[in-house]
Computed example of a mutant assay.
Amino acid sequence: MLVLSRRIGESIVVGASAERVTITVLEVRGDVVRIGIDAPRSVRVHRAELLEQLAETNTEAASPSKDAVDSLTQALRDRR
């Protein structure tokens, strides 16, 4: 992990010219830092905690409960 120190108004640039992302420190209040992110539309920018929550939700949705599987199995048997 690259660790950099920046002051308010200073930026970090990531990537090449076509896919360049600029991250600028906007404000610091105690232990909270506001940043601005300038990126092309093709570059998705997400908060890490939302990606973790989405991955967890997708895993739950892809793993049905035993009751749901049993119910579906019974419904399929009843159709025969």
Rank of each mutant, 00 (worst) to 15 (best):
S17D: 12
Q53W: 05
I37N: 03
V33Y: 07
R34D: 15
S65M: 07
A68D: 04
Q74V: 11
E27F: 06
R20P: 00
I35R: 04
T57W: 02
I37T: 08
R79G: 03
R20Y: 05
A48W: 10
R79Y: 07
I12P: 01
I23D: 09
R34S: 15
I12S: 04
D31E: 13
E56H: 04
D78K: 04
Q53Y: 03
D67S: 07
G30W: 04
D78C: 00
P40G: 09
V32H: 10
V21S: 03
V69L: 08
R6D: 02
M1I: 01
R44K: 12
Q74D: 13
A16K: 11
S42H: 14
V43T: 15
S65A: 05
V28E: 07
A39D: 02
V43L: 02
A39M: 06
D70F: 10
L54E: 01
R34A: 14
H46P: 00
T73F: 10
L72Y: 05
A75H: 09
D78E: 13
I23M: 07
I37Y: 03
P40I: 05
L50G: 12
R20N: 08
I37A: 03
E52M: 09
R80N: 09
D67I: 08
R6W: 01
S5Y: 11
S11W: 01
A39S: 10
V21F: 03
G36R: 00
Q53L: 06
V28F: 04
S71D: 12
V28G: 03
G30N: 07
I35L: 10
T24V: 15
S11R: 14
E52W: 06
A55P: 01
P64L: 01
R6Y: 02
E60N: 10
E19Q: 14
E49K: 14
M1Q: 15
E27N: 11
E27K: 11
A62M: 12
L26N: 12
S65R: 13
S71Q: 11
I12T: 12
Q74S: 06
V21Q: 08
S17A: 08
R20D: 02
T59A: 14
S5C: 05
E10H: 06
V43Q: 09
S17Q: 14
R80G: 10
V3M: 09
P64Q: 06
V33E: 10
S42A: 14
R41W: 05
D31C: 11
T57D: 03
V33N: 10
V43P: 08
R47A: 11
H46E: 12
Q53V: 00
A39V: 12
S65L: 05
V69G: 00
L51F: 10
R29N: 11
V13R: 08
R44T: 13
E19N: 15
N58E: 09
T73H: 00
R80E: 07
S65Q: 03
S17H: 12
V43S: 04
V21L: 09
L72G: 05
E60S: 06
L51R: 15
D70Q: 11
E49V: 13
A68L: 00
E60A: 01
K66I: 07
V69R: 15
A55Q: 05
A61Q: 13
A48H: 07
V14N: 07
R47Q: 07
A16S: 13
D78W: 06
V21E: 02
S63M: 03
A16I: 15
R29S: 12
S71N: 11
S5P: 01
